[in-house]
Computed example of a mutant assay.
Amino acid sequence: MDDQHMQIGEVAARTELSLRTIRHYEETGLVTPSARSQGGFRLYTETDVTRLVVIRRMKPLGFTLDQMRDLLDATDRLDHGADVTDEEREALTDRVRAYERAASEQVDKLRVQLARAEEFAATLATRLRQGPGTRA
């Protein structure tokens, strides 16, 4: 698979997550370093980086740590579950599909919030261009 190991600093730079956040995700069981160096440093692989990117993308959409764990479990089992029955594969796919729907719904809500925020910023900019004592 991927035998190239990276230390946590490189992983943090690649995932745009802080060292503290990566350690927190390790403590909560969302991601586990694939290895440790002789000096005890955490060592990560591309697979670990991919997991962290999934987590980073789920967080702003409001998914809980348990939901993140559940989705990662489902995708891990789909990706590496040679012994998964057809029935289990269908159930796992349904779980992933439910997360996709939830993510899409949250993206739609965020688009509305962003549009409102942009309208507000534009209102303020208009007010500032009009000068003091005017109403927007």
Rank of each mutant, 00 (worst) to 15 (best):
G81E: 10
R116D: 01
R77E: 07
L92E: 10
T21C: 06
V31R: 01
D70R: 02
I22Y: 06
E118N: 06
A115C: 00
R101G: 06
R127T: 14
M68S: 03
F63T: 04
T75M: 13
K109I: 01
R111N: 00
T93F: 00
A115W: 00
D2H: 14
L72P: 03
L92H: 05
V11S: 05
D108M: 00
E10H: 13
L110D: 02
R116Y: 00
R111E: 02
I8P: 01
T15Y: 04
S18W: 11
A115I: 00
R20K: 15
R23Q: 10
S37T: 04
L61R: 13
Q7T: 10
E27I: 06
D79G: 14
R36L: 03
R101W: 13
L72I: 07
T75E: 11
H24A: 09
T28C: 06
A35L: 04
T64H: 04
E88P: 10
T47H: 15
A74K: 07
R111F: 00
M6E: 14
R101D: 12
Q7G: 08
G29C: 06
L43Q: 14
L30Q: 03
L72D: 08
Q4W: 05
E16R: 14
A125D: 14
L30W: 01
L43H: 07
G62K: 12
G39V: 00
Q38F: 09
